[in-house]
């Protein structure tokens, strides 16, 4: 057993920690700070303290419309990505079908491909065959991006499970579908839940595909924030962002309570 790390490594670790806090948590703190400003401009530190920008966001039909679009989108993307991802993971895990490795590479491709290329391709494809972009286009786009995460988390859990469980279920009278329902799905549940969580979050704050495929009818919250920033920046942006952060934190908290964050992350 190693007694202690060399001093240089320890110093590096401390620097790393400080950097994480500064660059990850710092911006969050700034955004949340700005959101409570009483002034009319985005300045940090905030001038005075008020909830007026929260009020502005919550009473704005534009913001609330975008938020509802984003939530609806995130929910349907979570459902579709979870079903597709969990099914694909089950098939890949068994590895009995020919071409499983090709399949697995194909489904994980969105992880490594630049999203901007995918977004552009989808826009061109959609315009050529379906005309105006719509909610359905965004749904498909987000699902494609989210599916690899569900596959990864489900596979991670399945790979540690007893590979004979499904066969055992068959010898106990369960047909192929019953074996999946009663044995494979309960086994994979922590991974599927983690994947669903990722899918929701990815869709909820996805910006590139949403930006390319936006139309006046489908503006998601991140796009609304971006548009506001571009054309008439005011602290409502910060308030809307703080609300998004809040939702994510609540979600993490719920997942932790229900599943344990360790199981989901590990």
């Amino acid at each position: 057993m190693v007694e202690s790390a060399p001093t240089s490594v320890r110093i590096a670790a401390v620097i790393y920690l400080v950097a994480i806090v500064a660059f990850v948590l710092g911006p969050l703190a700034v955004v949340v700070g700005v959101s409570f400003t009483a002034g009319d401009y985005i300045t940090f530190p905030p001038q005075g303290l008020s909830l007026r920008w929260y009020e502005a966001v919550l009473s704005s039909s534009v913001y609330m419309g975008a938020a509802i679009t984003s939530l609806k989108l995130a929910v349907v993307v979570t459902i579709s990505a979870t079903i597709i991802g969990a099914s694909v993971a089950t098939v890949i895990h068994r590895g009995r079908l020919p071409g499983t490795s090709v399949l697995s590479a194909l489904f994980l491709a969105p992880l490594v491909l630049p999203t901007i290329i995918f977004a552009l391709g989808l826009l061109i494809f959609w315009s050529a065959y379906f005309g105006r972009t719509s909610f359905a286009a965004l749904w498909i786009g987000h699902t494609v991006i989210a599916v690899p995460y569900v596959i990864r988390t489900t596979l991670a859990v399945l790979s540690t499970s007893d590979r004979y469980l499904e066969e055992a279920a068959r010898t106990m009278g369960a047909g192929p579908w019953k074996a999946i329902l009663h044995v494979v799905v309960p086994q994979a549940m922590p991974g599927i839940a983690a994947g669903a969580f990722f899918a929701f979050n990815i869709s909820f704050d996805e910006a590139i595909v949403s930006l390319f495929l936006r139309s006046p009818e489908v503006i998601t919250l991140p796009i609304q924030i971006y548009t506001q920033l571009e054309y008439s920046p005011d602290p409502s942006i910060a308030a809307a962002s703080a609300l998004m952060i809040g939702l994510t934190v609540v979600l993490i908290f719920v997942i932790d309570r229900v599943l344990g964050i360790q199981r989901v992350a590990g």
């Binding site: 004979y164 469980l165 066969e167 055992a168 106990m172 009278g173 019953k178 309960p186 086994q187």
Partner: peptide, 27 residues
């Protein structure tokens, strides 16, 4: 038939009793 596997293949999400009831439920 019934089979005992080398790894036992018990269903980890079920209790001992539920495991033993499983073949009866499925059949």
């Amino acid at each position: 038939i019934a089979m005992v596997f080398q790894s036992y293949a018990l269903l980890p999400h079920l209790t001992v009793l539920e495991n033993v009831m499983f073949p009866l439920r499925m059949r």
